[in-house]
Computed example of a mutant assay.
Amino acid sequence: MIHANKPTNQAQFLLRRKLTVEGFTDSQWVDFIQELNHHPCVDIAERKPKCRLIVTFDATHWSTDALIELVESYGGRLKGGWWERQKLARYRFSDENIRANANLAPFCCSKIPPMKK
């Protein structure tokens, strides 16, 4: 279970993304991580060895695609390859799933689900 570091983020909607980013210098990494940690939807961001970026964010307000756009706006790019494409596809699917489930009203298991008219 991921624990929220910022009080505004809800732990049940937090997602952790691990991406390999290429094309950043050390000063760009520092600026980028600082920008991410000050973003209202990002819970925590950190750089790991081998250019690994680990970001935990609130999936109801932000997405993996928005993270990729931010990486590209700083001049970086994601590492290519089959495995990275598979991870991105799975990340995008779970982003959409959480966003859709966040808008659903829960109902009791012993009742009939609400019908659309």
Rank of each mutant, 00 (worst) to 15 (best):
D26T: 04
F93P: 01
A100H: 11
K6W: 00
T25D: 13
S73V: 01
F24M: 10
I2T: 07
I54M: 05
N101K: 12
H39G: 11
R92H: 13
A45R: 01
A59L: 06
Q12A: 12
I54C: 10
L78N: 05
R17T: 08
D95S: 04
I54R: 02
K50V: 00
H61S: 14
A89Y: 15
P114W: 02
L19Y: 05
E35R: 06
N101R: 09
D65R: 05
A100I: 01
E69A: 14
R92L: 09
W83I: 13
T8M: 01
F32A: 09
A105N: 13
A102P: 01
T64V: 12
E22W: 03
A11Q: 15
V42H: 06
E46F: 02
G80A: 10
Q28P: 02
W82M: 12
E96M: 14
A4F: 07
F93E: 13
T8Y: 11
N5M: 06
D58L: 01
A11N: 05
K117W: 05
W29P: 08
D95C: 06
H39L: 08
T25E: 09
C108I: 06
H3F: 09
K87N: 04
T64I: 08
D43A: 06
N101G: 15
F57E: 01
L78T: 00
D43V: 02
A59Y: 10
E35P: 00
I112D: 11
I112K: 08
H3M: 07
K48L: 14
N37W: 03
K48H: 12
C108W: 13
H3Y: 09
E35V: 03
V42D: 04
E84Q: 14
P113R: 15
P113Q: 09
C109T: 08
V55W: 03
Q12Y: 06
H38S: 15
A89N: 02
P7M: 14
R85P: 00
E35I: 01
I68K: 10
R85V: 11
L88Q: 03
Y74L: 02
D26H: 01
R99S: 12
K111G: 08
T60F: 02
R90L: 10
S110M: 13
G23Q: 05
E22Q: 14
I112A: 08
L14F: 10
K111P: 00
C41L: 03
L36Q: 04
L104Y: 07
L67V: 07
N9V: 02
T25N: 15
K111T: 13
L78F: 05
H39C: 08
E69W: 04
E69H: 13
L67G: 03
V42S: 06
H3R: 14
E69I: 03
K116R: 12
F32V: 05
